[in-house]
Design a protein around this nucleic acid. Structure first.
Length: 782
DNA sequence: TACTTCAATGTTTTT
DNA sequence: CATTGAAGTA
């Protein structure tokens, strides 16, 4: 085959149908590149085509690193690159597309244990480190506050977490903070930070911010790590660059310093993470950090109809900290944006769900619609109404499933197996089910362990020496040998020859044999709850079974760990780093409910933004600060620009908050929307619709079951079992199916094994997997 | 040690 | 309202 012709063909596919500025960004050669991409301007298109173009140019895929903020974005990017580059293109394999956090976690697993720069205050970072979720980080902060002996009235966990997060985001360590503290207040804060770091260090645990901070330190200070990373990655691409914080800025800078090839894509008008340390000057001052950078601005909007773009544009012009950039719709005219003032929140829900049903009747599938809100609490009323009208919906809160008590318990066993120093997990595992090891007994063990400079796990088998009651000691010893037995298995192979992961079986056995399942079921209030919680446990095992086998290493990549322990670590890492937005499944036949933040980067035909009221959007806590108000405005801007064809902006005259209904005040952003693009319905004055608030009548009871919402978790079923995408009943050999994580695949076989119906599916990008049909969601495409 | 009950208390957004 | 913590009881 003629290489030149092949390359030419790839190039033409890559550049096909692009606008002039898009083409410039895609074909830009070496050197720094900043792409300022307005909403709907083809940002993802540009990144994916640019990667494809690099590969076509002869840059090996394994030397390209693309960093995103969510796993969904990463996967979509990888899929799209793959479909652009012909399968037989040399050097096509091994592309790294990852979130900042997971890429850093992997870097730390590889280099952390031997790198001085990654050390904890208490000692070396070990490879099996735990990634603490928000709840565990909070628990650790509480312990740190207690250890620092501060008045809990004045020094709250939220305050401490805020302080620690801020410091970590700008790469300041605990000791540095303590050394540089000038006054009493900052010394107090620094003391808490130091205590917190010691707690994490003893547990061999890292929080989310640590993943970035320690990676940044390794890259800055450890020549071996920096050399390895710079040697391997010759092209860096960063998506959503406007939302990077200082740590991420440093990571990107050091990685790209080796090659000078850095391409960042973002939009200052869509910066919505200032509160978590995102520094907008990273993108505004890109040219200063990278002199000679090429800049491409993409302003044409190919997503939304004119009234929607007009709304977005008029709104964002009210921000003063902004470089003016025009935004115009290339799609053409469309329906005006409907600004609906409702009587109260239930009325609002009825109006929105009715609009959804109308749109569905008009041919728009539910998966192309979304309801967006400023606070997760606003999803409640919507969920009730969806249940009542039998509209299948998905609440995109990725962490919700992992916050459930039984799921946390199951994961605690896994965590302590992966990382014996994880006392938090050990305690939770030890007490679920109850084994006669209580809080006081565990505290004694902890004190004893601390005295010997070790973790509880290490002294568990000799609990008697810790001075606990004889009965407790016996329980500890039994539990210790239970864990020992499980640990032994972890050295075995992690995957079967067909690529299926043995961790699923391992977790299933663990859940049953530890007594966790029966305990959780016995604890439940009724059969239905028992059933649901048991199913959640099974889902943990099932998700573990889906851990993909690591691919063969590309040149300059580390050798993957294919033991069961390796699978366990990979699974725990994946679980720890899911984003809310990752739970959006575009192939499901359901309406998506999610926060405005989680909606960043997504698009839908029909969008409703609810709760556009003063105090909600803009949020109360932002009202006093002009620059926070600008961020609130950007948030609404992001929401508006998610919509392709139809946009609803709603408010309620009365809203129930904390159990009390109160009249609302219209959002100050309301007057900033252009009347010519709007259709106003209802009255927008305060106290609007007072008289109509209670007109639901007696038949308006909602579909709660015993006052508890039917879980807003990972596997929200369509309420009536219907699934527009086709349902799972017709999975047979030969079907083309889609999995929320693995993407498209072809069913090779359906068979029965161990009393379960399973399917072997060959996925296009993630290989052959065996899936249990009862638990896995597979949408049949054909 | 484990479970129940009651009072207080705080509330955005998320990797 | 819903979660959390403390106090009391079996």
């Amino acid at each position: 085959m003629d290489g030149a012709i092949e390359k030419f063909q790839v190039q033409s596919v890559v550049a096909d149908g692009l606008t002039e500025p898009q083409r410039r960004a895609v074909t830009h050669g070496d050197g720094p590149l900043l792409v300022l991409a307005g909403p709907g301007s083809g940002k993802t298109r540009v990144i994916t085509r640019r990667i494809a173009s690099l590969i076509a140019r002869g840059v090996p895929a394994w030397s390209i690193l693309a960093l995103t903020f969510t796993n969904t974005a990463a996967r979509e990017m990888a899929d799209r690159v793959e479909s652009l580059v012909p399968i037989d293109t040399p050097g096509r394999r091994g592309l790294t597309v990852s979130t900042f956090h997971s890429w850093c976690a992997r870097l730390l697993r590889q280099f952390g244990p031997t790198s001085e720069a990654a050390r904890h205050v208490t000692g070396a970072l070990e490879g099996g480190f735990t990634i603490l979720d928000a709840a565990d980080a909070k628990a650790s902060v509480k312990r740190a506050l207690k250890a620092a002996e501060l008045d809990p009235k004045h020094f709250t966990p939220a305050w401490a977490m805020g302080y620690i997060g801020e410091q970590k985001n700008v790469l300041r360590t605990a000791t540095q903070c303590l050394d540089e503290a000038q006054d009493f207040a900052s010394r107090t804060a620094a003391r808490v930070y130091v205590e917190y770091e010691q707690i994490l260090g003893r547990a061999n645990a890292l929080d989310f911010d640590d993943l970035l901070l320690r990676s940044a330190f390794m890259l800055l200070r450890d020549e071996a790590v920096r050399g390895a990373v710079q040697g391997r990655f010759r092209h860096l691409l960063v998506d959503e660059y406007q939302d990077t914080n200082h740590a991420q800025f440093v990571i990107a800078r050091v990685v790209a310093q080796g090659s000078g090839n850095i391409c960042v894509v973002g939009d200052p008008d869509q910066a919505i993470y200032g509160w978590r340390g995102a520094d907008i000057s990273n993108i505004l001052e890109f040219e200063e950090a990278w002199p000679g950078a090429a800049i491409v601005a993409l302003g044409d909007n190919f997503r939304s109809v004119e009234p929607i773009v007009a709304c977005a544009d008029a709104l964002i012009r009210h921000n003063s900290e902004r470089r003016e950039r025009p935004l115009s719709s290339m799609v053409g005219p469309g329906d005006p944006v409907r600004r609906i003032a409702c009587a109260d929140d239930r009325h609002e829900a009825r109006v929105v769900v009715q609009a959804v049903l109308d749109a569905r009747a008009g041919g728009t599938p539910l998966r192309e619609m979304a309801v967006l809100y400023r606070m997760n609490a606003l999803s409640r009323a919507m969920e009730e109404e969806c249940l009542r009208r039998e509209v299948p919906y998905v609440v995109a809160r990725g962490t919700a499933f992992y916050e459930r008590a039984e799921v946390r318990s199951a994961l605690s066993y896994l965590r302590v197996l992966a990382n014996p120093a994880d006392d938090l997990a050990l305690q939770r595992a030890a007490q679920n089910p109850n084994r006669g090891i209580g809080d006081s007994g565990f505290a004694k063990l902890q004190a004893h362990a601390a005295m010997h400079g070790t973790c509880v796990r290490a002294v568990l088998a000799r609990a008697r020496a810790a001075g606990v009651a004889a009965r407790t000691a016996k329980a500890c010893e039994a539990f210790a040998s239970e864990l020992d037995a499980l640990s032994l298995q972890l050295a075995s192979d992690g995957w079967e020859e067909d690529g299926s992961c043995r961790l699923g079986r391992f977790v299933m056995d663990l859940i049953d044999r530890s007594g966790l399942r029966s305990f959780v079921m016995k604890e439940s209030a009724d059969d239905e709850e028992a059933e649901e919680r048991s199913a959640n446990l099974t889902e943990v095992a099932n998700a573990a079974a889906e851990t993909p086998m690591p691919a063969d290493p590309e040149p300059a990549a580390p050798t993957p760990d294919r033991t069961l322990m390796g699978a366990l670590r990979a699974y725990l890492e994946r679980v720890a780093l899911v984003a809310d937005a990752d739970m959006v499944d575009p192939e499901r036949g359901a309406l998506t409910l999610m926060s405005l933040h989680a909606a960043k980067g997504l698009e839908f035909d029909v969008v409703a933004i609810i709760g556009v009221e003063q105090g909600i959007l803009p949020h109360e806590r932002s009202l006093a600060d002009p620059s926070q108000m600008e961020e609130e405005r950007r948030l609404l801007y992001v929401g508006i620009t998610r919509a392709r064809r139809q946009l609803f902006i709603t408010s309620a005259g009365l809203r129930t908050r904390n159990g009390i209904r109160l009249p609302t005040i219209p959002s100050s952003f309301d007057h900033e929307l252009p009347e010519h693009a709007l259709r106003r319905e209802g009255s927008t004055g305060s106290f609007a619709g007072y008289g109509r608030a209670g007109d639901e009548g007696p038949g308006a009871e909602v579909g709660w079951e015993r006052g508890r919402p039917r879980l807003a978790g990972r596997r929200v079923e369509a309420v009536d079992g219907t699934d527009e995408a086709g349902g799972s009943e017709s999975v047979r050999a030969g079907s083309v199916v889609r999995h929320f994580q693995f993407g498209m695949g072809r069913v090779e076989a359906v068979f029965s094994e161990g009393g379960r119906t399973k399917a072997r599916v060959a996925f296009r990008s993630s290989g052959v997997k065996t899936l249990v049909l009862d638990f896995v969601r597979l949408d049949v495409v054909s």
